[in-house]
Design a protein around this nucleic acid. Structure first.
Length: 103
DNA sequence: CGCTTGACCCTGG
DNA sequence: TCCAGGGCCAAGC
């Protein structure tokens, strides 16, 4: 085939987007966990870069993505925390109770 | 081809 | 529990 399956081991953002879109409402997940579920362990920073370039009109629940400490490391942390609260996720001092809301 | 940047993660003190 | 340091990986210039 002209296009061999050589791209199997290539970084495909689509997989990451799919995983993020699969986060249930009222729950959150960390960048490292998402990268791992997408099939790219150790590429947590890469996930962050993808979200940073994400269009503002994207339907992806990017606000449900936080770091492993439960902190919203995002330029719009205030907006994210507001959305999370609406979805039923408790946010205290910019932090989330991971042991309770993590997938 | 090499250095810098970034919505990260782990370990030690 | 909080702070500091080092490591990791991809994209941009």
């Amino acid at each position: 085939m002209t296009r061999n399956n050589a791209s199997i081991n290539q970084c495909d953002p689509a997989m990451v987007y799919t995983v993020i879109a699969g986060i249930p409402l009222g729950k959150v997940d960390s960048y490292g966990s998402i990268a791992e579920k997408a099939g790219y362990p150790g590429r947590a920073r890469w996930v962050g870069q993808l979200l940073a370039k994400l269009p503002a009109d994207s339907k992806l629940p990017w606000h449900r993505v936080v770091n492993n400490k439960g902190m919203i490391t995002c330029p719009r942390a205030d907006l994210a925390s507001k959305k999370l609260k609406i979805e039923g996720v408790a946010v205290a001092a910019g932090r989330i109770d991971m042991r309770r809301y993590r997938c």
